[in-house]
């Protein structure tokens, strides 16, 4: 346990407080103040300038009837589901690498996983956007070359009647409203985040060889090992990632903004609450209303965090 300093000692060591002041000032200015300001301004009609008018709860009343906003919550719920699914490959890959017997290979793969991180996110994003390009994009070329396109068209015409895929028209992944959500699902295939894999691997490393040997003697198969030994050990990390993922998806809008534009793409199919807030503030100039949208999001996230804490505590 670390020493608790008495008041007298603290007075003598008052300079220690200076150590924390810079962090505190930064956080107070650039995190606390804007948060407080957002709460305050959500009660105002405000274009971002000096002029503002107190309108009470009007912004919040408008929220209730904002069809775009409520649709966007539906979209984001779907995106969260996508992202939860996209967590699986990283876990499986970590387990796969962990089960390799050779330490050298393990290290080599870990290092190789990190290499693609040198590509800036934005570049990755634009390259993916380029993959989705109807005429030049890799995706359509692959589908053309492998006959996947023919299959999709056949399925469309004879089975599902989507009215989306046509023989002579290139597939507009990001321009056809129906395809926006599927495109967002495909985005980032095979959905491996290097940092996530490394963190899972760190968790897996705490399993001793004896545990595996004991499991082997007990006749536990490879799938059993995953569920009884490996998954429980990285559950903390998985849960943490899950929480962060839900929160970041819920408030995220960078991807949609760049891929689809500030209106959420054709038909607004890619509109998320965050993007709507951005749109209201910086496109429509309704800063007060944007703050109210932010407040709503904030409340939802706080609620989710609280539920998460409750659940975690119950399990402990």
């Amino acid at each position: 346990m670390k020493p608790r300093l008495s008041a007298a000692q603290a007075r003598r060591e008052w300079r220690l407080y200076l150590f924390v002041v810079p962090s505190l000032v930064m956080v107070a200015t650039f995190a606390y103040f804007p948060a407080a300001s957002a709460i305050y301004h959500s009660f105002f009609e405000w274009q971002g300038g000096d002029a503002k008018q107190f309108i009470g709860l009007a912004n919040f009343q408008r929220l209730l009837n904002d069809a775009v906003l409520w649709d966007s919550f539906g979209t984001v719920a779907l995106l969260i589901l996508f992202n939860l699914f996209k967590m699986i490959p990283a876990i499986l890959l970590a387990v796969l690498i962990h089960r390799l017997k050779s330490e050298r290979w393990q290290y080599a793969y870990r290092a190789m996983l990190v290499v693609p991180m040198i590509v800036p996110h934005l570049v990755t994003l634009f390259i993916w956007k380029f993959f989705f390009d109807p005429n030049l994009g890799i995706l359509n070329r692959v589908l053309d070359a492998t006959g996947g396109k023919v299959l999709l068209v056949w399925l469309d015409q004879n089975v599902f009647h989507w009215q989306v895929f046509f023989e002579r028209i290139p597939i507009g992944w990001l321009s056809q409203p129906e395809l926006i959500l599927p495109s967002l699902f495909l985005w980032g295939f095979p959905w491996i985040g290097a940092v996530g894999v490394l963190i899972y691997l760190a968790g897996l490393q705490s399993i001793g060889t004896e545990v595996y040997e004991a499991a082997e003697l007990d006749g536990v198969g490879p799938i059993g090992k995953f569920f009884y030994i490996e998954l429980p050990l990285i559950l903390t990390q998985v849960r943490l990632n899950l929480t962060l993922l839900i929160i970041s998806t819920l408030q995220g809008y960078g991807l949609q903004l760049l891929l689809l534009g500030d209106a959420g793409g054709p038909g607004g199919r890619g509109m998320t609450p965050g993007l709507w807030m951005y749109n209201r503030a910086f496109i429509a100039g309704e800063f007060g209303y944007a703050c109210a949208v932010g407040m709503l999001l904030f409340t939802v996230i706080l609620l989710l965090t609280w539920i998460n804490h409750r659940l975690v505590r119950v399990e402990k």
Partner: peptide, 9 residues
Amino acid sequence: LPGIANLVP
């Protein structure tokens, strides 16, 4: 605290 609400202020 989610950072989202902060961008505007």
